[in-house]
């Protein structure tokens, strides 16, 4: 092969990230007639944490890396605009917004800041982030009051729990299982597939589909590795990432059926908030918009909101 890309994603081979990576590898290797080789490194063999992988990507030690906002916010804090609670109302709007002009704007900005990180596409990983609790069911934001809820160590996630009166508790992923078992935390915020694959369902009994976060999955490439490709291969790589994107968008929708079934079969209860309760959740998270602008300025929050609004308008059923 003329070009070899090391592709890293931190999830294991059961994850849709891996499905996407496989589709990408197959597409790019066959459509480049073997001129590009893609080597897959799932599960932290070359780098163990998002920040570390991003550093490897910047140094061109790895060429392709999948990250959520959690990792990217260490180089581009404003990316957390995608994590502003209840920013995306539905799958379809999220897919539209994260597949539109917003991607180009983000690509340009991050390239400007880092000089080396090129955003290729935004897919999904694990569907939506929801509240998941051990013994107390959450039906409205008032129920969060006084609960210790595990969040990732990200200011905006902690702010959400705080705004609902809970205690946000940042605990590393490796200690979540034991912390749920012993009661250090009373709940967590995760997607169903992460809950099931880490076996958190052995303690988690309630999931509330409040859908406060769409788990956008950003695929990055080292800018030099992309720039040195001849134009025809650039096209192949771009197309390959589009195939990857659709794979990661479709797979969670299909997979979560079994995941939810298994969760319920193990004695778990899934609750979908009513229209009114959902509105209460959104209202409780309202102050975060201002908090976000105070922290990071309003530019990127507005940009994402505009993308969402125009998608919502364009997706209205024809009358």
């Amino acid at each position: 092969a003329d070009f070899t890309f090391n592709l890293v994603h931190l999830s294991n081979t059961d994850d849709e990230d891996y499905d996407g990576a496989l589709v990408f590898k197959d597409y790019v290797e066959s459509h480049s007639n073997g001129r590009i080789a893609v080597q897959l490194y799932p599960g932290g063999q070359l780098c163990g944490a998002p920040v570390e992988c991003i550093e490897s990507l910047q140094s061109n030690l790895i060429q392709i890396f999948q990250a959520t906002t959690g990792g990217v916010s260490n180089v581009f804090p404003e990316i957390q605009a995608l994590d502003v609670p209840y920013m995306f109302p539905s799958d379809r709007v999220a897919e539209c917004a994260l597949g539109g002009p917003l991607v180009g704007e983000l690509r340009e900005e991050v390239l400007k800041r880092t000089g080396s990180m090129r955003l290729m596409t935004i897919g999904n990983t694990g569907g939506w982030r929801n509240f998941a609790t051990v013994s107390k069911q959450i039906k409205s934001p008032a129920d969060v009051k006084g609960m210790k809820i595990r969040t990732i160590n990200s200011p905006i996630q902690m702010e959400l729990v705080k705004n609902m009166g809970g205690t946000p508790t940042p605990i590393g992923w490796s200690e979540v299982y034991t912390s749920l078992a012993t009661g250090v935390i009373e709940g967590t915020k995760n997607g169903i597939t992460d809950i099931m694959s880490a076996k958190l369902n052995e303690h988690i009994k309630y999931i509330t589909l409040d859908g406060h976060g769409y788990m956008g999955s950003m695929w990055w490439m080292n800018q030099d590795a992309f720039a040195e490709l001849p134009d025809d291969l650039k096209q192949v790589v771009d197309d390959g990432f589009d195939a990857l994107r659709w794979t990661t968008i479709v797979m969670p929708k299909r997979r979560q059926i079994e995941a939810y079934e298994a969760f319920k079969k193990g004695g778990g209860t899934v609750y979908t908030p009513s229209e009114q309760e959902k509105a209460e959740f959104v209202k409780a998270a309202e102050p975060i918009h201002k908090w976000f602008s105070d922290q990071y300025g309003s530019k990127w929050q507005d940009t994402v909101e505009n993308a969402v609004n125009s998608c919502e308008a364009s997706l209205k059923p024809a009358g």
């Binding site: 991003i54 550093e55 916010s73 260490n74 880092t114 160590n153 940042p170």
Partner: peptide, 18 residues
């Protein structure tokens, strides 16, 4: 080299770069 690259990476919860 690693350290100088770290100047562009923010710590998660502390007001410093790595």
């Amino acid at each position: 080299l690693f350290a100088s690259k770290g100047a562009r990476i923010f710590a998660t919860s502390l007001p410093i770069t790595k």
